[in-house]
């Protein structure tokens, strides 16, 4: 869940607004992202690890969330959602999900920019700034579509990591 929320926070530019006696955490914005392994060594995660059968209420709520974020036709087209999710899945080395979305390879400049947005938000979210949303706005995406673009990338990051974590702990 927090792999979703952190990316929404980083891409939307919301401010930290909870009262806390602890010192505020200052992100190291110059940090280089961890290198990704070659595609040949990406794990293939079985579908059984993409759900939470041991937690029926959470599992049901998650599936409803997943369907809305990845399958809605508005305010962002399904092809655009697939493009964003594919890039996020590749950046998290989730081979099965990336292969599932293989047909969503960028075909023009607009799609390349969507792809780039998803990769930056997945790989180095601490470097997001106002210009990243502005670039999508300049392509004609209205504000609600920007929220959905962020949500697609954030949720794919969360789901890929959750699946990998479940597969690893099942070994």
């Amino acid at each position: 869940m927090f792999n979703y929320l952190t990316r929404v926070a980083d891409a939307s530019g919301v401010e930290f607004d909870y009262a806390s006696p602890l010192p505020a955490f200052e992100p190291e914005r110059d940090r280089e992202p961890a290198p990704r392994p070659d595609r040949a060594s990406w794990p293939v995660i079985a579908d059984e690890f993409r759900t939470l059968p041991g937690f029926p209420a959470t599992n049901e709520a998650w599936q409803r969330w997943h369907e809305y974020v990845f399958d809605s036709g508005e305010p962002l087209k399904r092809r655009d959602r697939g493009l964003l999710a594919r890039a996020a899945a590749q950046e998290t080395c989730d081979r099965a999900r990336a292969d599932e979305l293989a047909e969503h390879t960028p075909r023009d400049d607009r799609e390349e920019r969507l792809d780039g947005f998803a990769r930056k938000l997945s790989r180095s979210p601490w470097r997001m700034d106002a210009s990243d949303l502005r670039a999508l706005r300049d392509l004609g995406y209205p504000e609600p579509a920007l929220l959905h673009a962020i949500s697609v990338v954030a949720l794919q990051n969360a789901e890929s990591r959750l699946a990998m974590g479940r597969a690893l702990t099942a070994r």
Binding site: M1, F2, N3, L5, T6, R7, A9, D10, V14, F16, A24, F25, E26, P27, E28, R29, R31, P125, W126
Partner: peptide, 14 residues
């Protein structure tokens, strides 16, 4: 604790 570690690992202020 888990949320904080996730945030920190992602270099997120939130």
């Amino acid at each position: 604790l888990i949320s904080s570690v996730t945030s920190r690992t992602n270099e997120c202020f939130y």
